[in-house]
Design a protein around this nucleic acid. Structure first.
Lengths: 106, 106
DNA sequence: GCAACATGCAACCAAATGGTTGCATGTTGA
DNA sequence: TCAACATGCAACCATTTGGTTGCATGTTGC
């Protein structure tokens, strides 16, 4: 389940904060991103790696620093999957409603 | 961060499978839901509890069985939050584009 | 050229997670 | 009424997670 990996990556306050920052001002370098997260640089690096593994961000090394770039395509996948679940639910609701109406007719 | 809890709950293949089943045919009783998940009934129960804690589902005890009911409002929150991130990103892209255009004018 | 900087890598640790088994208890249909 | 059923609760276990510290290494500006 690819989607589960994405949600899992989003399912941590620090990682979600990183994503939020990137939507406002990507690209960031790794150390920039690590500031004010409340954890060490290496700790932040690990969280960034989780985001990389789920394709939510990509890394572009440039000289001595490496930039962290948001991959919005992955965000899209996550959003659309939930939308699909919701529409599935809607479909079912309408089917139920139709059933009820048939019953009341007899 | 409430949203992080929701994504965390969605971030597991078994829990996601449970949610999928519920969108197709909620309500299910707990034991019905536990079938064919590849884990024990008690294992499944724990996963369902995670979904309850993040408000993705609710439990309604009825006699000796208890029904598991999908809470689509929580799904909405999850989807809309991602949508907000995406639109934030779009905003930034347009701001950058404008900036570039200004530069080429000079 | 070299000090300061950005990063990587590895070992380590506590806590959370995902699962199990065993047993107790309330409910219900024949 | 009572056996079968649906569920709950608790102890236990291995693995993953989220964080740390210490140190090594490549890069760059002065």
């Amino acid at each position: 389940m690819i989607e589960a990996d994405i949600y899992k990556a989003l399912g941590d306050p620090i990682r979600l904060e990183i994503i939020k920052r990137l939507t406002r001002g990507s690209p960031y370098t790794i150390t920039e991103l690590s500031d004010n997260l409340g954890i060490s640089r290496q700790g932040a690096r690990k969280q960034i790696q989780v985001l990389v593994s789920s394709n939510l961000v990509q890394l572009k090394p440039q000289g001595r620093e490496t930039q962290v770039i948001l991959d919005t395509a992955t965000l899209q996948i996550a959003r659309k999957f939930i939308a699909k679940l919701e529409s599935q639910w809607e479909l079912r609701l309408h089917a139920l409603k139709r059933l009820t109406e048939d019953k009341t007719q007899n």
